[in-house]
Design a protein around this nucleic acid. Structure first.
Lengths: 338, 338
DNA sequence: AAAATATATGTTTGCGTAAACATATGTCAA
DNA sequence: TTGACATATGTTTACGCAAACATATATTTT
């Protein structure tokens, strides 16, 4: 007699039929209770809930919604979990989906479009109600399968390009131009740039560079790495740039971590920011406020982008919003000593 | 003639039968191709793949694995996505699950055990193969449902306590003691502590405090906040502590962000670290390396914890490892100027 | 008091797949 | 030449649930 795993006489794991039997109702009534739809009397409601609890029944969502792309699941693919920007967007997405009783299923593309396509293909096997992708650049195969399956898809971070259905983000182009304009107005003419190969950073810099060069400025040095950079590399590359004889007046960084690293170099070397050298970052991460010197940066509404995208995906009546572009405002934060 | 027999015009969305018809094979053969199991000739393999692509078929995992808790899905619940520690663990989990062809389904508990239970209940409705939870503290209801369903569960971050099946993390107690010992050896006697109400930080501090007080030291001030703290609050609370007359020799922080905030205060005020005031953090986040002064901290293998937990969950033959505790080594990093 | 409506529950059926089993052909050693 | 085994494919069936529809009982309206 191996009743070791046997919780009771019912099937293991228990099904709605088992619950129905215990509660003395039909399986369909149990289904109604579990989903909270249709008419159920208070008496039956309680009996079913008690029965379910007593035999350890857990609702099985795989069985019912087998055919349609309409499960309370949202596929989410981001390039990386190591980058604060994406985890903040994710946080907004996660919170919002929670409020709408949806679960995110995640994938990380590692900044590879091919990987992204693979992951999306895999995620679609769960017939999710929607999909959230980063950026507007995707493989043809990915676009095709999205069109064929008709999954509702939101693209986040970037709005400079054409969306599959809806995009939520900022104009990278506008951000680059705005920063260029601001720094030129401050009287700076000679710039350096530190970044890594990122699609959105590139869009930003292209706009930045064009504006600078069209208005009498010059970008005298650039350091563009193939691999992901963080604060530490920001410090090193800044040291590298400032060690030469051709010193810039400003260094523009692809993100705040790099810029903060640059600031650390300046502090360690006793350089005054922005008098000896001005620094500009991107994102407006909150930790900047804790630094001894406020770095100039562009504040982006990362959490809100996640919230809005998730809300759009959750909204059953938003199909008509197709080809919708939700461009978020950015704010240039001026540097200075705090 | 019922139109059921006339599946010549393919259903929308397409099914394995549709693919089978196009490829001229049986549905079962398509199933074998999709899952890459059993025997399939190269000729058929290619025909099926082409057929699937041509009609835009996407594998449907909801249909087959309807009954068992054995879907290629892992439920993951973390307290927060705003805390770098968890996103790094998540990163390890995500990478490893990817390698094992498993997908994470996420939930965020917001440091609430009740919320955690709700989320787990919801995640189980997808019949995941496994579950990864943070910490060893859970509600009774959660423990019960895990036992009843028999889902393989890994608990991460902490090993000071008893695990449901397996735990992967560090000994918070040992970390607190190690730091206490180190600082006492350095000759410090008077300590302050800055933290927020976190289960694991509390375990650490309890051990830290006990050791300090049993060895002639004193904790003269503490600042314990109810809400999440970051670098900025670290700076403010440090200013607060140092503004009084009863100045400590060392401040121990619950994490590196707080400690870095403290360092920023010292830099802004021209205080020498560690001569005027010593600072100790926890985690060993990589950004510390970029700071002008290396803060003393405890380095924890966050990514690796995620990797190992995910590996254990992925391993079909790891059931026998029940009641397995995987305690990771920690490393005390001494501060100093870099 | 009959009809209309709201509320509450049950019955039948099919969703798309994979397990279990059945069948067929090819290959190789004795 | 036999049969043992590897390879390749097909058939039947059950999985657990929810949609569609049917029925039954209360409650309200006319």
């Amino acid at each position: 007699m191996s009743d070791k795993n046997q919780k009771n006489q019912y099937s293991n794991p228990p099904t709605m039929h088992d619950v129905a039997h215990v509660a003395g109702v039909s399986q369909m009534t149990v289904s109604r209770v579990m989903r909270g739809t249709g008419y159920v009397s208070n008496d039956v409601l309680k009996r079913v809930q008690d029965a379910a609890r007593s035999i350890g029944y857990v609702h099985n969502r795989l069985a019912g919604g087998m055919s349609k792309y309409d499960n309370p699941l949202i596929g989410v693919v981001v390039p990386s979990l190591q980058n604060r920007v994406f985890t903040e967007v994710l946080s907004g997405i996660s919170d919002t989906l929670n409020n709408n009783n949806l679960r995110p299923v995640f994938g990380v593309s590692e900044y590879s479009l091919e990987r992204e396509e693979e992951i999306v293909f895999d995620l679609l096997s769960w017939r999710p109600r929607g999909l959230i992708l980063a950026g507007l650049e995707h493989t043809d195969g990915l676009r095709r399968i999205i069109e064929q399956t008709g999954v509702k898809t939101a693209e986040i971070m970037d709005v400079d390009g054409s969306a599959i259905a809806a995009s939520f983000g900022i104009s990278q182009k506008a951000a680059g131009e705005q920063m260029a304009k601001h720094l030129l107005n401050k009287g700076y003419k000679k710039f350096a740039y530190i970044a890594w190969l990122d699609e959105r950073a590139k869009k930003r810099f292209d706009a930045f560079k064009a504006y600078i060069e069209n208005h009498g400025g010059v970008i005298s040095q650039t350091r563009i790495s193939q691999k992901l950079l963080s604060m530490k590399e920001g410090r090193e590359l800044t040291a590298d740039i400032l060690s030469g004889s051709d010193k810039p007046e400003v260094i523009y960084y692809a993100n705040d971590d790099l810029a903060a690293g640059g600031l650390m170099h300046c502090i360690a070397e006793g350089l005054k920011v922005p008098d000896d050298i001005a620094l500009a970052g991107f994102n407006g991460l909150s930790f900047l406020e804790a630094l001894p010197v406020q770095i100039t940066t562009t504040k982006t509404p990362r959490y809100d982008i996640g919230v809005e995208a998730a809300n759009w995906i959750s909204d059953k009546n938003s199909e008509q919003w197709n080809n919708h572009i939700h461009q978020f405002d950015i704010e240039l934060i001026e540097g200075g000593t705090t």
